[in-house]
Amino acid sequence: MQKRAGIIEVNNLTFSYGKDKQALHGLHFAVGEGEIFGFLGPNGSGKSTTQKILTGILKGYGGTVSLFGKELREIHTRDFLQKIGVLFEFPYLYANLSALDNLHYFASFYPKEQLRDAEKLLEELELKREFWKKPVSSYSKGMRQRVSMARVLISSPRLLFLDEPTSGLDPAGAVLFRRMIENERHRGTTVFVTTHNMMDADLLCDRVAFISGGSLVALDTPAKLKERNSDHAKESTLEDVFIKCTGRRLGE
């Protein structure tokens, strides 16, 4: 496994939910600054656990986790939270507030100087203007996902954690989101993506890691992983690599 110095450094990460529920078995990886890093694995493999540990939600882990060059246990403060943005799997928003109200509310916890314009963001995310002031309860899933993405980006985070970012979006929406993520990378933001979507992983990620049963089973660029897996008869896809490495199909 390639080890790089960078914004995230994970060494021998272990975690257990109880006596017999060991979720992670000594993960080692690093994510460089400005990199889009994909984290893939079947259900129950430890993806969410890893992300929760990296965002500081879960404590009591073994090993070391460094973010921004410092041990996570020491830096999990308001300053740390101001530097990260987290997109959850489902769009969690205040249903009785409008998109703008949601954004203004969540933005109010960050320093003014790092905030972006809410209306500009919604425009970039192609949410129709007539919906901006309507309550989120009237939105479709795709619209809520756009507002969630705006919530994450409004604070100009240095490190983004995205869980299934294109889930619930139509193809045009998925393309838009990929473009937004690329734009973030150009701004110098590091992106940690957890996804089942092979196209996202293939198109977006600089490197992908496959996790299975709490252990990393592969970590490299998508091209190199496909190359290693392909034979002369057929070109390998990332899904093929996934199945080979994890022994399971996506979604299992």
Binding site: L81, F88, F90, Y110
Partner: peptide
């Protein structure tokens, strides 16, 4: 209501005490 909307978990990653 906030639990149902799932926003409590969002507050977990916000810089708010």
């Amino acid at each position: 209501k906030e639990k149902q909307m799932g926003v409590i978990r969002v507050h977990a990653i916000l810089p708010v005490r």
